[in-house]
Every structure is written in C-alpha cells, then in structure tokens.
Amino acid sequence: MKEVNLMPHTNFLVNAAKSGDVLAMNQLVKQWQKRIYNFSYKYFNDYDLAMEVTQKTFISMNKNLRKLKEDALFKSWLYRIAANYCHEEVRKQQKRWVFPFMKVQGQHDNKDIENTVSRSTHENPEQVYGSKELKTVLKKALATLPEEQRMVVIMKEYEGLKIREIAEIMEISENTVKSRLYYALGSLKKLLDQWNVNRETVQYEI
C-alpha cells in the first residue's frame, strides 16, 4: 500500500504539542520557522538579528504553548512573540539603528485610507516597483519608516496577514492598523518618487 504523506493541520499539531507531544512540537517549528525568519529578516535586513529573533521566538513557543487558550489563535500568538522580540532587539540596537519618523503631508479621510488598504491587498511594494534591482532600494526605504509602520507593512504586504490578524498581533484596533498602513505606504511612495524610482528604471545606485 502506497504511503500518503499529509501535512498535519496546525490546530491538530498545536493541540498535540500542548499535551507534550515532542514530534508535534518539532513539526510546528518546521512549519513556521521559515516564515518567522523571513518576517524578522524583512524587519531588520540583518541575518544575525533575524536568527536571534527566530531562535528566541521558538524557545518561547516551546515554553509557553500550553498557556495558549485557543488553538486557532496560534498564528497570531506566534507572530506576536516574534514582533515583541523585534521590538526588544530594536531597543538593544538603538545606537546602531535610526528610524526617522516620516509623515505624509495633508489630511486624509477614512475613505482614502480604505482605498489605499484595499489596493495594497493586490500589490505589495516589490510587485509595484518591479524587479531584483529594486529590492535593495525597497529595503532602504522600509528602514526609514517608523517602527510600528514598518511592522504593519511587513505583516500585510510580505507576510500576507489580514488586517484582523495584525490587529490581534499588535493588540491595536483594525482602524489603527489601516491608518498605519496608509501612512506607511504613502511615505514609501513619496520617498521612492523623490529617488526617481519607478517601474521601468532605477536612475541611481545605493
């Protein structure tokens, strides 16, 4: 009889791991390690810091999983742990990292914010601005965003998390998530325009 290789459902693994199943715990790490590393790397653009956050996240997951009351909230819970460790590393690295606050000039109503957030569902920055040559540019642009805005952009545009999930992770309202995303995307667009970056060409080197 041919063996069928099925990926166990996350909720099943969480429930089993909470009961002390070591194999289930290891499978959870295997399933989520890459995503948490990619999230951390997008946030810092630094291999060592991303690895540090990833390791701490799964150590914390191992120690505290039994405290998770609802298995269905595992995804948000895990990202919240990673986000908290990112914040912690930022505080440690304050002398190295500078994240100047950037504001978009002018007043905007809720309709503007909803429209921008809706468009962002289909177009992340790399899709909008193009190819490999622009990845370095986008990393530099992301680094200029305030910490909380950068976190929202990475979660939404790169990790594909829903507004509701981001709100749960960051423990803020959905409207606050939308507002931060709106201003962050506006700041990125303004900065890229200032650098003469568009879909067709990069007119400078970093």
Rank of each mutant, 00 (worst) to 15 (best):
M1S: 12
M1I: 05
V4S: 10
L6Y: 10
P8G: 02
P8W: 07
H9C: 02
T10W: 12
T10A: 05
N11M: 01
N11S: 05
V14D: 01
V14L: 02
N15H: 05
A17S: 06
A17Y: 03
K18E: 04
D21W: 08
V22D: 11
V22W: 14
L23F: 07
Q27T: 09
W32Y: 07
Q33V: 07
I36G: 00
I36W: 10
K42T: 03
D46F: 06
Y47M: 06
L49Y: 12
M51L: 13
E52P: 03
T54P: 01
K56Y: 11
T57P: 00
T57D: 05
I59Y: 13
S60D: 11
M61C: 04
N62F: 13
N64A: 08
R66Y: 13
L68T: 05
L68G: 04
E70K: 10
A72K: 14
L73P: 01
L73H: 10
S76K: 00
S76I: 00
L78E: 00
R80A: 03
I81F: 08
A83L: 11
N84F: 07
V90F: 15
K92A: 15
K92E: 14
Q93Y: 14
K95H: 13
R96Y: 15
W97L: 11
V98C: 15
P100T: 06
Q107E: 15
E114W: 08
S120H: 09
H122G: 10
P125Q: 03
P125K: 03
Q127A: 14
V128Y: 15
G130C: 06
S131D: 12
E133A: 07
E133L: 05
L134I: 10
K135S: 12
K139P: 01
K139W: 05
L142A: 05
L145C: 02
L145D: 00
Q149D: 08
V153A: 04
M155D: 01
E157G: 09
G160W: 14
R164T: 12
S179K: 12
S179Q: 14
R180S: 09
Y183C: 05
S187C: 07
L188C: 07
K190H: 08
L192R: 08
D193G: 10
Q194F: 13
W195E: 10
N198D: 11
N198P: 01
E200C: 05
E200K: 06
T201D: 11
V202L: 14
Q203H: 13
I206A: 07
I206L: 11
